[in-house]
Design a protein around this nucleic acid. Sequence first.
RNA 1: UGGGGUAUCGCCAAGCGGUAAGGCCUCGGUUUUUGGUACCGAUAUUCGGGGGUUCGAAUCCCUCUACCCCAUCCA
Length: 751
Amino acid sequence: MSEHKDFLRTIVEEDLKSGKYKEVVTRFPPEPNGFPHIGHAKSIAINFGIARDYHGRCNLRMDDTNPTTEDTKYVEALKDAVEWLGFKWDNHVRYTSDYFDKLYEYAVELVKMGKAYVDSLDEETMREYRGTVTEPGRRSQYAERSVEENLDLLERMKNGEFKDGEHVLRAKIDMSAANMKMRDPLLYRIRHAHHYRAGDKWAIYPMYDFGHCLSDYIEGVTHSICTLEFENNRDIYDWVLDTLGLEPPRPYQHEFARLGINYTVMSKRLLLELVNEGKVSGWDDPRLPTIAGYRRRGYTPESILNFCDSIGIAKANSTVDVAQLEFAIRDDLNTKVPRVMCVLDPLKVTIENYEGTEEFDAPYYPEDVPKEGSRKVPFSKEIYIEREDFSENPPKGYYRLTPDQAVRLRHGYIITCKEVIKDAEGNITEIIAEYNPESKSGRDTSGIKVKSAIQWVDAKSAKTVEVRLYDRLYSSEAPKGLDDLNPDSLKIIKDALIEPAVITEKPDERFQFERQGYFYADPVDYTDEAPVFNKIVGLKDSWSKKDKPKASRGERKPQVKKVQVEGEVEPMSEAEQALFDRYTGELGLNSMVADILARDEKLSSFYEEALSVSSSPVTIANIVANEVARELKEKQAEELKFNAKQIAELVKMVDDETISNKIAKQVFEEMAKSGANPAQIVEAKGLVQISDPAVIVPIIDEVIAKNPDNVEKFKAGNSKLLGFFVGQVLKATGGKANPQVVNELVAEKLK
RNA sequence: UGGGGUAUCGCCAAGCGGUAAGGCCUCGGUUUUUGGUACCGAUAUUCGGGGGUUCGAAUCCCUCUACCCCAUCCA
C-alpha cells in the first residue's frame, strides 16, 4: 500500500473504525457490452485493491440489465482481465440478471408503498414533461393511478402483455427536483428481447438506477465505488435503499475520477470505431488501450498495476501522460528480462583481418540486474550492424562507428572502419573493417578507448525475424476520432536479424533488444519458423532527443498567462445597502466584512443580536462573518447550538486577552458542537493564554536546541521558518502561548 | 441558465492553520562494454483570480473565473 492513503481508503478506514461495517465489501461491476480497457484496470485495482488491503472481499458482477447490448463474449473478456491482473473475485461471478426476481419483488414493494407508478406517456412526451435544467418538470397524469392498477399493470408488463415502450415503471419522487435524475426516474422498461443469460423469461428489465443499488445491497457491498459521472445518480441510489427501508447495513456510493491518458481514446464509441473501421486488427491490437491489447503487446500485469498505483485516486478530472505508463513497463521489465542483440536495419560489415569463427560468452543480464544466465554469441568475418550505428559525416557528439572512430562490438572486439562501399546511388552498402585481436571483451589488452558498444549479429548464424514496431495510435494529444490517427503507428520489419540463441534457447518471451527497447514474442503469430516480436516500448533515448526538435515528448508548453475576467457582483438591495453603510460608518467595519454581513440576512440578524450585548463591534463582526458563517452555511439559525450572547462572551475573552485568537477558534468549534458556554470550555480545558515570557522563553530555547538545522537555515535567510518555530512553541504549550509574544521572542532569540 | 463536482509545477498527486511531500517528464552531473539502469543534483517565494479573518492561510470566510457531469425507455 502506498504511503499516502487516497480518499477512498480514508473513508473505508473510518467506516471500519467507527464500526459502521464489520468487513469491507466492494465490487467491480462492468456492463458486459465492450472490451475492458486500462480505465477498467484502474477500477479493478481500486476495488480489488481496497478489499485486499482491508481484508474484505470484492465481487465481480456483470451489470447486465440491458439485453440488447450485452453478450457473453464480453463477460469472458472481463473475467480474463481481472484474472490476468492477478485478482480473485469472491466466490463465483455475480450477475445482476441473477437478481431479477428479487429486484421485481422490490419494485412491487415500492408500488405498494405508493412510491412507484406505471407511466404510459410516450417517450417524447415524457421527455417534454421532464422539464429542463432551469425549468421544473410536470408529473404525468398516470401518476394518479391506484396502487391496485399499478400492481396489475406491472404484472402484465412482466408477463409480456404490452409492446416495447408502451409503459414504464417510474419512481414517484419529485418532478421539480433540481437534480434532473430525481424527476421520477424510470425503474423498469419493457423489452421483448432475448437476454444472453436470462433467456426469454423477462419482458421487462430494470434500469441501472434501480438495479445497481439493490444489487449492491443484495451482495452486502459496503462501499460502492464508481466514476464521477454517477455523482448525480447518488441521490437515487440513496432514495431507493432508504425508501425500501432495508435492514442495515447498506452500501454507500463514492465517486472517483476516471482515467484519461493522452494520445489515447478510452470511450466505447471511439474504440468500437477503430475496430469496426478496420483501423486496428481487433480488440487485442497492441496499439489499443484494451487489456487484451496491452497483453498482446507485452505489458505485464505488474506494470499495469504499478501504473494504476502511481497515478493515484482523486476527484479531479485528469489526463495522465502516456510517458508515465511507458515508465511503468520499462521499470518492470528492466529487472526481469534478458538482454539480447537484434539488428533492425542491417548494414553489412566485413572484417578483413578476421578468419574462421568463434563464440563469445555473453551474460543475459547486465551487472545491475541480479539474475543469472548467459548464452554463446557466434562471430565470424561477416556481420551486420545497425545502419544508424555508422555515420560517414557524424554529427557532434556521435559515439558510434565513423571513418575515424572505433567502436566496440558488444561482447566482442573493437573494430575500425577501413572503407565505405556504396552503390551507384551513393547508398552505403557495406563497410570494410578491421578488428583488434587484443580487444576481446573481458580480456582487452589493447588499451583502446571507445565511446560506445553497439549491437551486431553474425551473418551466417543470425535468424531472420519479423519485428512489429508500435507507436502511439493517435498523433493528437486529445484525439477526437479517425482524423487524429497517427499514420505511422505500425511499422513492420520483415527481415530483422537476431542472434540465434533467442530462437533456439528461448530463454524468455520478453527481451530487451539492447539499445533499442523491450520486445515480446507475439503470442498469436509467433512460430519457430517465422518468429514475430512486438515492440513493447523503446528504451529511453537521450541521444535522439538531442538534435531532433522536441516534437513529441514531454516538452514544455509555452506559458500563457491566463487573463482572469472579473464577473459582476450582484448589486445590494436598499436595505442591505443601509446596513452596509451603518457597518462601515458608525461601527467601523471594513468593507469586506460589512459586505458579507449586510448581504446575508441570517448573518446580519445574528450580528445585531450579538452587538446588543457587546461593545466590540469589529471583533464580533469578524467572528460572525468568518466562523459563524461557516456554521450557518448548512444550518438555520435555530439549529445552532450556540447563541449570539455566547459569541459576545467569547469575544470579550479575546478582547481582555484571557485567550488568544487561536484558542478562540478552538473554543468556538467546541461551542458549535456542544453548546457549552465559552468560559466553561476555557475553564474545563485550561485554555487561558500564557503571555509571561518567563514561561515561554525556556520552551523556545528547547525548540531551538532541538532544531539546529532549521536555525541554520533561518539564519541563512529562510525567514519563512519563523512560522515553523512559532508553531513548534505553540504546539508545546497546547496552543496556549500568546502567539504575538512568542513571535517577538522567537525573532529576538534567532537574531 | 438550475443542480452536482473540480481547480496545488509541463502531466499525475500529497497536504486538512505553523518549513509547498512524492512520482512521471525535462535539464545538468557521476558510474557504465546498452546514449539503458542506478546514483546525485536542479526545477512552485507560491497553491485558478481578487479580497477578508489571523502573529501566521494552499488550508477558514466572502466573491469572481474556468473546466467537467446531469434534460437515453444506456450504464
